[in-house]
Design a protein around this nucleic acid. Structure first.
Lengths: 151, 151
DNA sequence: CACAATTAGTTGCGGGCGCAACCATTTTGG
DNA sequence: CCAAAATGGTTGCGCCCGCAACTAATTGTG
């Protein structure tokens, strides 16, 4: 571990900075797939992932489970609807909410996309050994808990 | 580790997503200090940290060592100069570049700020045990290497 | 039952960011 | 030695984001 002189800071070894850089790096690594090949940006990808793994969900639900701001979700949904990847039905008992669903084309994209993305994740994590991976994930979980980010 | 059904994805357990959320969380945790108490945003904080730990450096150098886009650096420097926290001298042999330095006030902020930030980092990492911390950092390093983010 | 408070979702606005283009200077190489 | 390429840095532009304000529908309360 890096030694650190009191009162001096070197950004390169500073964990919050490294963590941010790493998250950006991993995100870009993934974006190669969903952006270049499917024309999705991050919010759109997250909406696709969320809608695809459930049957009918509301924008509200998407916002909660992705932790994105509701306006970001609203705009992502609008884009995806324009591209006919998802559709909305103002069906339920609550006539404020609108049920969001994948269209045929959206479902097709989802089933093409998800395995590629999961493979990328697997391939990324493979650069850690099995045991170190466990340690790394445990660390992430502990930090998440400490910061109150759980589930 | 979470079991994962082939072809299905749950965002909450997806490492790239978790990593991004964690980085944002950690960043906000720190921002409490440098934003609320010192009125700095992320790019400004990074510039302060970089300039403060070296004696005279160029915008180019800051951009490289923080991995920020040069326009982002340029604008952060402009803001900090307006607030008289840093100053620029178009000194060196190369008359395109300008040497960036902390002013008296900037130096004062730096020496107040850095210990607080380092303390926050220490306090954050303390929620991992000593051994798990080592594992977590090793994991980060491995991922950085894999993605070519080194130093 | 009516009226206030809440909730789902959208939109105008201001701010920050990256891209590309630009200016000024320095380096390269013919 | 000069023209072309490269480099440090700034700026105009368009895009995305979050905040706050808004509409519409629902729930709670007297």
């Amino acid at each position: 571990m890096s030694t650190r002189v009191h009162g001096e800071l070197e950004l390169a070894g500073f964990v919050p900075y490294r963590l941010n850089r790493l998250a950006v790096g991993v995100s870009n690594h993934l974006a190669d797939i969903y952006r270049e090949r499917f024309g999705l940006d991050v919010p759109e990808w997250r909406v696709m992932a969320t809608v695809g793994s459930q049957h009918g969900c509301t924008a509200q639900h998407i916002a909660e489970s992705t932790r994105m701001h509701k306006t970001r979700v609203s705009r992502a949904i609008a884009h995806l609807e324009e591209r006919d990847l998802i559709e909305r039905a103002s069906s339920t008992a609550d006539r404020r909410a609108r049920e969001v669903r994948l269209t045929k084309a959206g479902r097709r994209m989802y089933t093409d996309l998800v395995p590629l993305v999961l493979e990328r994740e697997r391939e990324l994590l493979a650069c850690l050994g099995k045991e170190p991976l466990r340690g790394f994930l445990a660390g992430m979980t502990a930090l998440e808990t400490f910061l109150g980010l759980q589930d």
